[in-house]
Amino acid sequence: MIDFHGVKIPAIGMGTWHMGSDPGLYDQQKATLQYGLHHGATVIDTAEQYGSGDSEKIVGDAMKGFPRQKIFLISKFLPYHATKHAMADALDRSLERLGTDYLDLYLYHWPGGTPLAEVVNNMEAMKKSGKIRHWGVSNFDLSDMKELLSVPGGHDVMANEDLYNIGSRGLDYEVLPWQRKHGIPLIAYAPVDQADTRGNGIIKNTTLEKVASEHHANAFQIMLAWVVRDDHTLAIPQTDSQKHMQENIDAAKIKLTDDDLKALDKAFPKPTHKQLLDII
């Protein structure tokens, strides 16, 4: 478990991008989400953009019968829904699709044209309404985060969700150190680099394979354990497989040693200069 501004949640939850739109996969995906909920992956990350609401619908379907208070539910709104009335309407539509009356965390999906001070004010209004417990941002770089904290109420941001994995370490140069300094947790999306197909080249790295062997794990589990190594990061891998879901859950129990981390740093070096924010 990790501490998210006083809220205890599992370090590895469930992403839902690309879920809910394929009728041929719907039952399998729903069953995988339900398996995750019943085996400890009680954080679900979704968005109004994913499948134009399809992902929220399958999440709502999967949550039926599971105690709502035991789920930490995250969704996101699009930049053109950042104004007051558009945000309120977008939130209501998301809640309806999800079959719930509140979100635990509502994220501004990426920076848009609405002034950040207005966006924060609107999110605070949603929080006062009781329809969201917390708010945060996504796909924010360091300049965006600094601007956020400069506006009234900006310090109330719960988290920033960015792409982060052992093969994409741009955040390690300045974003992550800055967020840790300011006590802002990271939500890492694509923590195994879109590798649910199990065909990703990173997993063939000999160092990754060696560390995995020493922990009686697979390379994907080591990638996840690496992402959540600091106890302040939430990883949200996406999978349609119950087997892989259990592997993801088990990855949270892996404690990488100092020697492991040194070896992995050598194989996948930290950036030595500012990099553009990776986005998919």
Rank of each mutant, 00 (worst) to 15 (best):
G6N: 05
I9K: 06
G13D: 06
M14L: 15
G20Q: 09
D22Y: 06
D22W: 02
L33I: 14
H38G: 00
H39W: 11
G40S: 02
I44F: 04
Q49H: 03
Y50W: 14
Y50I: 09
V59G: 14
M63I: 06
K64F: 03
K70A: 07
S75M: 06
L78A: 13
K84I: 07
K84P: 05
M87G: 11
A88C: 00
A90V: 01
L91T: 05
G112A: 12
A117Y: 00
E124N: 08
S129Y: 10
G130N: 13
G130E: 08
R133F: 00
R133E: 01
N139F: 03
D144V: 09
L148M: 09
H155D: 09
M158I: 03
D162P: 05
D162Q: 09
S168C: 15
G170W: 07
D172A: 13
Y189G: 12
A190D: 09
G199W: 01
G199I: 03
G199D: 08
N205P: 14
E214L: 07
E214W: 01
H215E: 13
A219I: 01
I222G: 07
L224R: 03
A225Q: 11
R229C: 00
T233Q: 06
A235F: 07
M245Y: 08
Q246T: 15
Q246R: 14
N248D: 15
I249K: 02
K253V: 06
L256G: 12
L256S: 06
L256H: 13
T257E: 12
L261G: 02
L261M: 15
D265Q: 11
L276M: 08
I280H: 15
I280K: 06
